[in-house]
């Protein structure tokens, strides 16, 4: 027997943050790829691309402050805390579940609850993206926006180039994250259920009785 339980997972500020973030990052990815390839796109000119990229970049940066302080001042941060116990074992167990267990009738090793919003694998990826990749992209992005603040040479290598390559690499990582993030979100009560949650705030959890 399963019974569905509703939990208010995503407070309003978090949903606002996520909506803006998602929209802007998608714009950034599209325009970023355009800038990278440098081809004159008939739909959006190079100039427009730069403008969109700059405006979305600034929005994501300001928005990141919302995420950061939102977490700092609310209880939401507790979901991001990693315990040293089972540091590698726990995410591996979750990965095995995704790759094998979920098809063979195994029950989820880390069922979600009021205390656990993310499974271990999810948690690790969110931390990587939100506390490493995005900050790096933001900092390098600001650097490219004001090239005069970049260190000129790092050993014998041009500072601007290092910044640019780092910016692209982290941008790429975020894109890959995004693809996986969206796909994994379709794994839920129904494929669209998780998407509804991030809009309404309410998450459905199936409890085995």
């Amino acid at each position: 027997m399963t019974e569905t339980q509703k939990i208010y997972f995503y407070p309003l500020w978090l949903r606002i943050w996520h909506g803006i973030n998602a929209l802007c990052i998608i714009l950034l990815i599209i325009t970023g790829i355009n800038l990278q390839s440098g081809s004159e796109n008939p739909l959006i000119g190079f100039n427009t691309c730069i403008n969109i990229h700059n405006v979305s970049g600034i929005t994501v940066t300001l928005n990141y402050l919302l995420f950061f302080f939102g977490n700092l001042f609310t209880n939401n941060k507790s979901f991001y805390i990693v315990k040293p116990k089972g540091f590698l074992k726990r995410p591996i167990k979750q990965a095995k579940y995704y790759a094998w267990g979920m098809f063979t009738g195994m029950s989820a090793p880390y069922p979600l609850s009021e205390k656990r919003k993310f499974n271990p694998l999810q948690k690790y990826f969110y931390i990587l993206v939100m506390y490493i990749a995005v900050p790096i992209v933001v900092v390098t992005g600001i650097g490219l926006f004001f090239p005069e603040i970049i260190i000129e040479k790092i050993y014998s290598i041009s500072g601007v180039s290092v910044t640019a390559v780092l910016h692209s690499a982290m941008g790429f990582f975020i894109s890959i994250f995004l693809v996986i993030h969206i796909y994994v979100s379709t794994i839920g009560k129904s494929p669209l259920d998780n998407f509804k949650s991030i809009i309404t705030g309410w998450h459905h959890i199936e409890k085995n009785k």
């Binding site: 800038l35 990278q36 390839s37 440098g38 041009s158 601007v160 180039s161 910044t163 640019a164 390559v165």
Partner: peptide
Amino acid sequence: FSNDSYIIGMQE
């Protein structure tokens, strides 16, 4: 990393 100037687009 070779060029002193970094030119968006050209760096591919």
